[in-house]
Design a protein around this nucleic acid. Structure first.
Lengths: 154, 154
DNA sequence: TTGACTTGGTTGCAGTTGCAACTATTAATC
DNA sequence: GATTAATAGTTGCAACTGCAACCAAGTCAA
């Protein structure tokens, strides 16, 4: 902590979180970007569809706290790549049910495996003590802020 | 953790870190952006200059892991706002020694105070147990990755 | 039915970013 | 000294982002 009222960026929690997030995200980025040409948002959309099956863009926004324009554009790009399909809902024609194509599922399976390995490696290197605590701490921090603004970026 | 080899984004450490970083950064963004018209990078450059005094753009890059083009543009903007000055080094005329103007120092003092309060509030709300551990955990994560790629984004 | 309101999703625009290529200066090698 | 490499910082460009404005569809109330 900084001495006597002097602010030190290196001790600022939002900064530390950003640095840690950047450091780890960077490491995994090459997997979805260089190998499969996906953006981070596209990868996240894919991860949601892969995990939960068919869902709407709105659902993805709610679950992952991604801004709806980002989801919209990610979906458009993935559709163009044949990774997912949209099906307009019969009940409500504003709604589009999104689901991965076989190709999309195949890509998700591959990146998902790499993600599991990446995560496991990270936790191994952190050691069991840290690995055991880090999730709950981060979830606490996330929960703290969600009382306030709902907006999101990346 | 995800069951039997199925990847779950919600348990992926890089994702959790990003969510936590976004959540907290968002909360503080209004302070430097809305009140003083600074970008995040500009605020970080300012924080470094405020803490360490005169330094070069390269130093800021090294210390804060910010990409040099971002620093370059942040510095240009801050100079235009009268927040900092550049002085070409006599020893090496490629180098520019950056330092905050009185106006820049005043702005830093104000934002710095708010940052201290923001950080303290965050830690209070997290509770002493978490607050005590979170720094070292994040620093460990940051240190882990710094063996690998050096690149940076925001 | 009509109108006001809400909601799912898209688009336009201006601003930011990352990367590669660039200039200018210094260091190293011959 | 001349040539080559390295370094500090800038710029062009294409991609990505956030926000506000928008469209189309559905809801609600009279």
């Amino acid at each position: 902590m900084a001495a006597g009222g002097t602010f030190d960026l290196q001790d600022f929690l939002p900064y530390l979180l950003n640095q840690a997030a950047e450091a780890t995200s960077r490491g995994f980025q090459s997997t979805y970007r260089d190998r499969y040409g996906l953006t981070r948002t596209q990868w996240r959309v894919m991860a949601n569809l892969g995990r939960f099956g068919a869902m709407t863009a709105r659902d993805i926004c709610r679950i992952s706290h991604i801004e709806k324009t980002k989801v919209s554009r990610a979906v458009a790009g993935m559709e163009a790549e044949g990774l997912l399909t949209r099906a307009t809902s019969d009940q409500d024609r504003r709604v589009e049910n999104l689901s991965l194509t076989p190709k999309g599922r195949a890509v998700f399976a591959e990146i998902g495996q790499r993600a599991l390995a990446f995560d496991a490696d990270l936790r191994t290197r952190l050691g069991p003590d840290v690995a055991a605590r880090v999730d709950s701490i981060l979830r606490e921090i996330i929960a703290l802020q969600s009382d306030g603004a709902i907006t999101e970026d990346d």
